[in-house]
Amino acid sequence: MKKTVTKLADGRELLYFDRDETVVRDSADLRPLEPATSLSEVRLDPATGDWVTVAAHRQGRTYHPPADQCPLCPSAPGRLSEIPAADYDVAVFENRFPSLALGAPDPAGDGSPLHGSGAGTGRCEVVCFTADHGASFADLDPAKARLVLDAWTDRTAELSALPGIRQVYCFENRGAEIGVTLAHPHGQVYAFPFTTPRTTRMITAAAEHRARTGGNLFEDLLDAERADPVRVVLAGEHWTAFVPFAARWPYEVHLYPHRRVADLTGLTEAERAEFPGLYLELLRRFDRLFTQPGDNTPVAPTPYIAAWHQAPALQGEELALHLELFTIRRTVGKLKFLAGVESGMDAFVNDVSPEAAAQRLREVAS
């Protein structure tokens, strides 16, 4: 892998990740851009202890542009984009409309002990998986998927080392139903100045499990699923994918390495080599989950979120790296909306049993 670091016209960082180590990336960004600014701040909810990011400047971000104006496609004569090169393998750049930014100013505050706040310090990056606008992650070959994994690992290592960063989160939102505003296949990386609420709850659960049993929660979860594989979807030498016993989403799969590591940087070469094939198979199965009544034609693409859970800095030694993949589609033409119970109380009701979901995901194997 070759990594090339350059700058966009407004000073944001752009990184190319290439399989060909001889490639030269010297295309300049010729757009007349003003420097990007961020007014983000984080505010503490005293009732829950959760941090909330306020980023009002994001209201003006790019929203569903036509394909010939996609900002993630390579630049071409008469159409300059966020990627100055005429082609690329994987490209990563600082978001022009970030929720968090290293230069975010400190909020004035009002002095109230109930109004805790701070600068929205962090970094938000866009990860473009391919130059092909019409493709998806599932269309990548294993070598390209491995390159994306290497890019995620690189960004985890670099962003974790930045001052004030507590947690690095790599993820992909796919599909308009999820809320995606750019159709080009891409993901994002957030570097947070706090430990996110979901991760905080997992840290607490892991500590309680350790105190109660003396074991690691995530190792024990994986061992239990592998011992009774009714919810196992697929497995390799180094990874296992399963539907969790208490899945929240209609179709939800967790992919764990067999050896517990804190984050992507801890994976061995053997673990990295096996990941692309298993992950691509999972994504392709998701696109075969739902079929048209009568002719069994897949209703694709399936909207999904793919989320890497990684241990935060200086905390969460008990956490295990794993990937969570889920869709909000519960059946053909119907979505799982987070209505009053889920949104109001964070109490999920699943319309599909985890065992049935796992069976269906095994049925649609390649």
Rank of each mutant, 00 (worst) to 15 (best):
S38A: 08
Y190L: 03
D50A: 10
P163F: 02
T196K: 13
C128S: 09
D223G: 14
Y88N: 01
L33T: 12
V5K: 10
K144M: 11
L289C: 02
L234F: 01
L335H: 06
R362F: 05
T195F: 03
T297E: 12
D106A: 15
R329N: 05
F192S: 04
G316D: 01
V24K: 13
T4D: 08
R61D: 04
G344S: 09
A300V: 05
A211K: 14
E82D: 11
A211T: 12
V127N: 00
E125N: 13
G118N: 00
A356Y: 05
T213G: 06
T327A: 04
P107Y: 09
Q310Y: 04
L278G: 00
S160N: 14
T268R: 08
A311Q: 13
E21I: 13
A311L: 13
G111W: 06
G164Q: 00
H258N: 11
V148A: 01
R329A: 14
V253P: 00
R288N: 01
T331P: 05
P276M: 05
E208V: 14
L338E: 15
G187C: 03
K2F: 02
A183I: 14
T195H: 09
D228Q: 13
G277W: 08
D346A: 15
V126R: 00
L335S: 06
V189K: 07
F242C: 04
K2R: 10
I203E: 13
P250L: 09
R123M: 12
R201D: 10
A357G: 03
D20S: 08
R43I: 05
V42H: 03
S38T: 06
T48C: 09
F194D: 03
G316C: 07
G78C: 10
G122M: 13
G134M: 04
R210C: 12
E317I: 10
P65G: 08
V349A: 12
Y279Q: 12
P142F: 01
E237L: 11
A161S: 09
E125H: 10
D139I: 06
L280C: 02
T37G: 04
G277S: 11
S117C: 15
L182M: 12
H254N: 06
L44S: 05
F348I: 09
R231F: 04
I83G: 03
P107I: 12
A205H: 14
A241Y: 01
D45C: 15
A347D: 11
R210S: 13
T4K: 08
T130L: 02
V24L: 11
P354M: 04
V233A: 08
P32W: 07
D20Y: 05
N173H: 07
T153V: 05
R288M: 03
R61C: 04
V352R: 05
F275Q: 02
H258F: 07
E21V: 14
F337G: 13
L102A: 13
S117A: 15
I328V: 15
F245S: 10
P185T: 05
P65V: 12
T153F: 06
E225W: 03
Y256I: 00
D154K: 10
E125C: 11
G118W: 00
A365T: 03
R285M: 07
P84W: 01
Q59W: 15
L39T: 15
A207L: 13
F97P: 06
L321I: 11
I203C: 13
P193T: 07
E355W: 02
A86G: 12
G266P: 02
R362V: 09
